[in-house]
Design a protein around this nucleic acid. Structure first.
Lengths: 195, 195
DNA sequence: GCCTTTCTATAATTCTTGCTACATAAATGC
DNA sequence: GCATTTATGTAGCAAGAATTATAGAAAGGC
């Protein structure tokens, strides 16, 4: 049966996607509620009734980002059999995401709230996501080593930190308007660490 | 002869240095005028009389940053004879700057105003500084190649983009609380691109 | 000594921005 | 039909932040 009161005139999921675009393009702070409601096609009261607050909306939008856009590089990392190819595929997916972002915004997880206070909840969530990325890369490298694709004495944890940093750098470059060849040059340079 | 009216009770240069610390630690937007005046030990009217506006003050503080802190990596880059050692010295200087920054803020030029609108004057100045860094690295690599320290077919412009991106990544990592060993691992990984 | 000039201190003022009150509309359940 | 529930739209509130008005203080010039 349908819910009790007057039904929504807008689609919540679609509005969330619009909100993600705005957050991604402008960042959390620069995206103001007026921008969001305009893109979502709703008014402030509907906004707050459906999403609680700007911060809560960002959490939801970020969930959506991770499960769709962000998941691509993780999939590339885990689903590619050869470890070098896997790292390359992850970096290529990151570059694609950065280039496909609205107004060259780079990765939302990489750059989100970078200039906010350290104790900001959302900032800490971004940082925690970045740490998780280091972990994922480390695990993948360890798997590659155990399969004999890397030398036994490879510094996998150092390499994990390095490749995570390259993902961040790709986003920063994209924000500065770098094009695909420039990002590819960065990836190519980074791949030498595995030779 | 001394200037006409009542003399300042504070030292302008010293106040500027304090302001730089605050901007560096918190970023342009998060550093509010109250934080700045508190650190500078002055009141808002003195602040505005001496520095025009928060934005003008940031310009001055950034000048100071470039000519002191930022200059260290450029000096390291230019003053080291061997090109590989020069790149390594530049990265090490960047890591030092990032680690020495107040509250692990990373490089001011690398991360400043990253989440601000693209048309913000200060943001564009940061971006322009980052582009200049790519240029400097490129020139240094070209010099090294002409001196026979790099293979004749080395992709110096691609490598320049890559190493500039590593500088950015070091700052982002430092903001997330990375310690020296982690930054050194990133540098070590990056150095493989020159082998 | 007094005028002019420039700085200092307290206390607003103005502008932005996230958020909400209020009145109204559209659905369900009895 | 009427009460209940939930959504919409207009208009505005409240808090925060950059900036300034006003009065008074400290120097030089005559």
């Amino acid at each position: 049966m349908p819910p009790r009161g007057r039904p929504r005139k807008f689609d919540r999921d679609q509005a969330l996607q619009q909100a993600l675009q705005i957050f991604w393009e402008k960042g959390f702070e620069a995206a103001q509620v007026g921008d969001l409601t305009a893109a979502m096609g709703i008014n402030p009261p509907s906004f707050y009734a459906a999403f609680k607050s700007k911060e809560a909306l960002f959490h939801e939008a970020f969930d959506l980002y991770l499960s769709t856009i962000g998941a691509r590089s993780i999939t590339a990392l885990d689903a590619t059999p050869d470890v070098r190819a896997a790292i390359h595929a992850m970096l290529a997916a990151s570059a694609d995401n950065a280039l496909g972002a609205p107004r060259a915004a780079g990765c939302l997880a990489a750059l989100g709230l970078v200039n906010s206070p350290h104790d900001h909840v959302l900032r800490q969530r971004m940082a925690s996501e970045r740490r998780a990325m280091i972990q994922r890369i480390h695990i993948r490298l360890e798997k590659g080593r155990s399969e004999g694709q890397l030398p036994p004495d490879a510094d996998t944890s150092g390499l994990a930190v390095f490749y995570a940093s390259v993902v961040l750098a790709l986003s920063l470059q994209a924000q500065d308007g770098a094009d695909r060849p420039e990002l590819m040059a960065t990836i190519q340079g980074a791949m030498h660490a595995l030779n």
